[in-house]
């Protein structure tokens, strides 16, 4: 009887104070971002004083004296992220099929280790190694060197969700297709790929955001006149956190949130579809 009583009052999922800590955690995570968002609407040039709501810094981002620089950096960032994520996703998809559907083979662990190297090595080490490598082979630092580096460190980020997805797909689907005399390419193209798509898409998005986010490696191996948004912002911030930087940051922030929400909802629709099946 006594035990039963105890069980009714004790909820193993509830700990006093954990809600409070979670709220503190969210406060720490959001406070700086919200402050910057708020101040990006400040009419005053001096960022420490508030003098009314204004969109002037958003206009400044697009038409101000630094607009051309930011526009170019934004194009570089987007085109590099897009290309790097596409290449990395294709490589990672192939690699995931090889690893998950390739049967048991010697060096599987080694192969997995190789794929995950770019995640495990600290960014600054990757940056140094690539700078030395590019200067040694005489590749002029610039757009291409940044693109190569981004492809390399995007591969594991694209690989993880794709292989996770693939592991959850029964092999019987492609086996059935092959029984019906579909060749391997057709089995992939018409059977496996449609099933893998959500994984490929989240891999692509992850790689895309990781590429957009990168500062350390890009900063090391960028060349003449080629800036990405993070390196351009870093340069500007050194001369003071200006309101236009805050406006630009807010825009990038909203862009990231949009992408995450997109991947979140894709994941959810997919899950619901699976659950319905």
């Amino acid at each position: 009887m006594f035990t039963g009583n105890n069980n009714r009052t004790y909820n193993p999922r509830r700990y006093p104070g954990f809600l409070f800590i979670t709220l503190v955690c969210l406060l720490i995570l959001y406070a700086p971002l919200l402050v910057v968002m708020g101040y990006s609407f400040n009419d005053n040039l001096s960022i420490t004083k508030w003098s009314g709501f204004s969109l002037r810094w958003y206009t400044d981002v697009f038409t101000g004296p630094e607009a051309a620089k930011f526009k170019k950096a934004a194009w570089n960032s987007l085109s590099i992220a897009l290309s790097a994520a596409l290449v990395a996703t294709s490589f990672a998809t192939a690699a995931a099929i090889g690893m998950v559907r390739g049967g048991a083979f010697n060096g599987k662990t080694l192969s997995f280790g190789l794929i995950s190297i770019p995640i495990m090595v600290p960014e600054i080490v990757t940056a140094v190694a690539m700078l030395i490598f590019f200067s040694m082979i005489g590749l002029k630092l610039g757009y291409l060197s940044i693109l190569i580096a981004h492809i390399v460190f995007c591969i594991p980020f694209a690989y993880l969700p794709i292989s996770a997805r693939l592991q959850g797909i029964e092999a019987s689907f492609e086996e059935a297709a092959q029984d019906l005399y579909a060749d391997r390419w057709k089995a992939f193209r018409y059977v496996l790929m449609p099933l893998m798509l959500p994984g490929m898409l989240s891999g692509f998005l992850l790689a895309f955001i990781i590429s957009l986010d990168d500062f350390i490696i890009t900063n090391f191996i960028k060349g003449a006149g080629v800036e990405t948004l993070p390196t351009a912002i870093f340069g500007a911030v050194k001369q003071g956190i200006k309101p236009n930087i805050m406006a630009l940051s807010t825009l990038m922030l909203l862009f990231s949130v949009l992408l995450v929400s997109l991947s979140y909802f894709i994941g959810r629709t997919d899950k619901e579809k699976n659950d319905a099946n």
């Binding site: 490589f91 090889g98 190297i117 591969i155 092999a171 086996e175 391997r184």
Partner: peptide, 23 residues
């Protein structure tokens, strides 16, 4: 599962080469 075992090395090659050469 080993539906793609015969082409496994070809599938892994791009990644091996990229990470091997540039990392």
């Amino acid at each position: 599962s080993n539906t793609f075992a015969p082409v496994r090395n070809w599938l892994l090659l791009p990644t091996w080469l990229t990470v091997g050469i540039f990392m």
